[in-house]
């Protein structure tokens, strides 16, 4: 049956990409919320925020963009839970399960669709950031590295999203998991330097995954060689990915047996 894995996954990915093309609002809303946040932070709070060069000094869009991109991903992956839950509700999931197709294709199709949809949303957000004055000294290799980190982060969060998509009882429950994920960047170095935070908050901020990922992307965008943060960031992403994938597969097997 695995002989058909690639073919079946391609066919099913084509199906869910078509869903996105027919309701592009899922990409627009994924991009819109982070853009609104970026506008507010840059033009309302930005003048008062000290990123290390004195309040209001330096290019705050440059400082902010990595965190904004992660927020975009965290909200974007909830559509994977949404679409997966919809398939289960509508009965088409059962139809696929009773057909002679590669079993894991159904999940991989949703995951690949999430990568494509989030990539498009991120391109839109970066485009708006450029209009707002985002400038980068990144070379081609740095861009590749940034893309790789963002894809890995999307992949990890998407596999987390698969779990509520398969287990939720209601549509609201399926998408609610993403709220804490969206909140994580606020408790990190995404908006302000962590050394301005009080003790326990600072400790949390410095030891959670978003900070190392934000720092890595910020370094890469500024054209500096990435610090040790990149290895911590990669370790977090791979660790979350492997754990979420394993859990999702357990849940999936239970669901289809």
């Amino acid at each position: 049956m695995n002989a058909h894995f690639l073919g079946d996954t391609t066919v099913l990915t084509g199906r869910s990409l078509r869903h996105i093309l027919r309701s592009p609002d899922t990409i627009i809303t994924t991009a819109l919320m982070p853009i609104a946040m970026m506008l507010m932070f840059v033009y309302v709070f930005g003048g008062a925020i000290d990123t290390g060069q004195g309040a209001g000094a330096g290019n705050y869009v440059n400082y902010l963009l990595p965190g904004i991109l992660l927020i975009a991903i965290a909200s974007g992956v909830s559509y994977t839970a949404f679409r997966l839950f919809g398939d289960l509700q509508g009965g088409i999931f059962e139809r696929f399960q009773a057909m002679p197709i590669a079993r894991s294709s159904v999940l991989w199709a949703h995951v690949l669709t999430s990568l494509v949809a989030n990539a498009v949303a991120l391109i839109v957000v970066v485009g708006v950031a450029l209009l707002m004055g985002f400038r980068t000294g990144a070379n081609l290799f740095d861009w590749f590295a940034v893309t790789g980190v963002l894809l890995l982060f999307t992949l990890a969060l998407t596999w987390i999203a698969v779990i509520p998509g398969l287990t939720a009882k209601t549509m609201d429950g399926a998408v609610a998991f993403s709220y804490p994920l969206i909140f994580l960047p606020f408790l990190s170095s995404a908006f302000v330097p962590t050394d301005s935070m009080p003790g326990p908050v600072r400790w949390f901020a410095e030891n959670q995954p978003v900070t190392s990922i934000v720092n890595t992307i910020r370094d890469l965008f500024s054209g500096q060689t990435a610090s040790a943060d990149i290895w911590i960031a990669l370790a977090w992403c791979v660790g979350v990915l492997v754990t979420a994938y394993a859990f999702a597969m357990v849940v999936y097997r239970r669901r289809i047996s």
Binding site: G7, D8, V11, L12, R15, R18, H19, R22, S23, G90, G91, I92, E94, R95, F96, A98, M99, P100, I101
Partner: peptide, 29 residues
């Protein structure tokens, strides 16, 4: 699964796709 086809209690069609696309989807799978 090769030998059967299931039509469940609730019509399991993809609402976003057209009738033709639904059939082609299953034909490809």
């Amino acid at each position: 699964r090769q030998s059967i086809s299931l039509t469940g209690q609730f019509a399991a069609v993809d609402d976003v796709l057209t009738g033709r696309e639904n059939l082609i989807l299953v034909a490809k799978l």
